[in-house]
């Protein structure tokens, strides 16, 4: 990167360390922290949205909608993440290409599934073979977001479903006695009150989601754990910066990162719980009321 680093085998000491830590691969490693944070920033709200939809569907008065919601929660929760990530992503990728295959390929009478191979014409490849490496990375990232959102959405749905049931019946009945419609009760009374019950469970899921990001590598997205393993592994003279087995130090950095991240999240969640407990008919809400008085 710097001119002084042109011949890494001739330099040593601090300068070597500086050059080593700014090599192209290390810069990729630093970027991968952004990848992980970006994934969390997009996945958490999407999973929350999926969960909200799932829970609302599961509570629906219309039987087929309720069945669909419950089936979604039950199926996704019951399948191990790693299987889901291996199977679902390949299936999703093939489904996308199959749909494009039907639209753009000249001959669509031959099924693309031929024995072990999946073949579509080059025009139907997603992303196209001509696309840059960045586009391929972005596509993998997109698949990852969708998969994470579906998996964590199911768990979120179950938490929200439970939280909706936990809102005291009396609150809802009182609202109905005031003449509110079903929708009004849902929007004005149930949803504002449910969050405080959902928060501990959602906080747990958030923690698990933070730690689940190494699953990204299964999808071809290089995350921080991949880079720590790759950079830390011992390097022979074939590399510009030969060194021994340094995986321990790289994993220590990750340990500190994950602990710091989860600690900050815990503090944030504690503040949020306090805020949401204001004026609620719960023990925490009562404690806040007494403290204020």
């Amino acid at each position: 990167m710097f001119e002084a680093c042109a011949d890494p085998k001739a330099i040593e000491g601090l300068q070597w360390a500086l050059c080593y830590l700014t090599s192209g691969k290390h810069l990729d490693f630093y970027w991968s922290f952004m990848t992980v944070l970006g994934l969390l920033a997009i996945t958490a709200p999407s999973a929350l949205a999926m969960g909200f939809l799932g829970a609302t569907a599961a509570r629906s008065q219309i039987a087929p909608v309720s069945w669909a919601g419950k089936a979604y929660i039950w199926m996704v929760r019951g399948v191990p993440d790693i299987i889901f990530f291996l199977f679902f992503v390949i299936a999703l990728d093939q489904l996308i290409e199959y749909l494009k295959f039907l639209a753009v390929c000249p001959a669509t009478d031959v099924s693309p599934w031929q024995g072990l191979e999946f073949r579509v014409c080059p025009e139907a490849k997603v992303p196209s073979a001509r696309a840059s490496g960045f586009v391929h990375q972005l596509y993998g990232f997109g698949l990852a977001v969708v998969t994470f959102a579906i998996v964590f959405g199911a768990f979120t749905a179950n938490v929200i479903y439970g939280a909706m049931q936990a809102v005291p019946r009396a609150q809802l009945e009182t609202a109905e006695a005031y003449g509110m419609s079903r929708g009004q009760v849902f929007r004005r009374v149930l949803i504002p009150q449910m969050w405080v019950y959902a928060l501990p469970g959602l906080g747990n899921l958030w923690m698990i989601l933070i730690k689940a990001t190494p699953l990204l590598f299964l999808l071809g997205v290089k995350d921080i754990v991949y880079y720590a393993r790759e950079l830390g592994g011992s390097k022979t003279q074939a590399y510009e910066y030969p060194h021994g087995d340094w995986r321990l130090y790289y994993f220590l950095v990750l340990l500190v990162f994950y602990l710091a991240f989860t600690r900050v999240s815990e503090l944030g969640l504690a503040r949020l719980t306090r805020r949401l407990s204001h004026g609620q008919a719960t023990a925490a809400g009562e404690a806040l009321r007494k403290a204020a008085a």
């Binding site: 890494p8 192209g24 691969k25 810069l27 790759e230 592994g233 074939a238 590399y239 510009e240 910066y241």
Partner: peptide
């Protein structure tokens, strides 16, 4: 990308070997 000298990711982050 993990089997030098056949193929590996070099320090610039590119496939090499």
């Amino acid at each position: 990308g993990a089997y030098p000298p056949y193929n590996f990711i070099n320090d610039a982050g590119e496939v090499s070997g």
